[in-house]
């Protein structure tokens, strides 16, 4: 599987990375190099193998927490790093739905 320039642009769009036209070719080359190398995984016989989804070395189960309000009420801290805010709201350029 080899990436073409259109796919590079599509992926950059999905990832919300602005891509200058001049970067497309370089990136395409690099990505194809990496993907070509990854391609060797196809040699491995994985018939009947359960995929390993998490990082735990053994069986893992989701731990549960009690239903109690233990957080929140910290709007000041939540907004302290905001690049733009209006009152206690985060602000972004107007979105048209």
């Amino acid at each position: 599987m080899s990436l073409d320039a259109a796919t590079v642009r599509r992926v950059a769009n999905l990832a919300r990375l602005r891509l200058e036209e001049s970067e497309v070719e370089t990136l395409r080359g690099e990505l194809n190099g990496i993907l070509g190398w990854i391609e060797q995984l196809q040699e491995v016989d994985t018939e009947g193998v359960e995929p390993m989804a998490g990082g735990a070395p053994g069986e893992a189960r989701l731990p549960w927490r009690a239903d109690a309000v233990t957080d929140g009420g910290i709007a000041g801290k939540v907004l302290a790093n905001a690049p733009d805010r209006e009152g206690d709201y985060f602000a972004v350029p107007k979105v048209v739905e």
Binding site: L41, V44, T46, V49, P51, M52
Partner: peptide, 8 residues
């Protein structure tokens, strides 16, 4: 595929 190889 990678998750399966990871399991192996």
């Amino acid at each position: 595929k990678a998750q399966k190889v990871r399991a192996l």
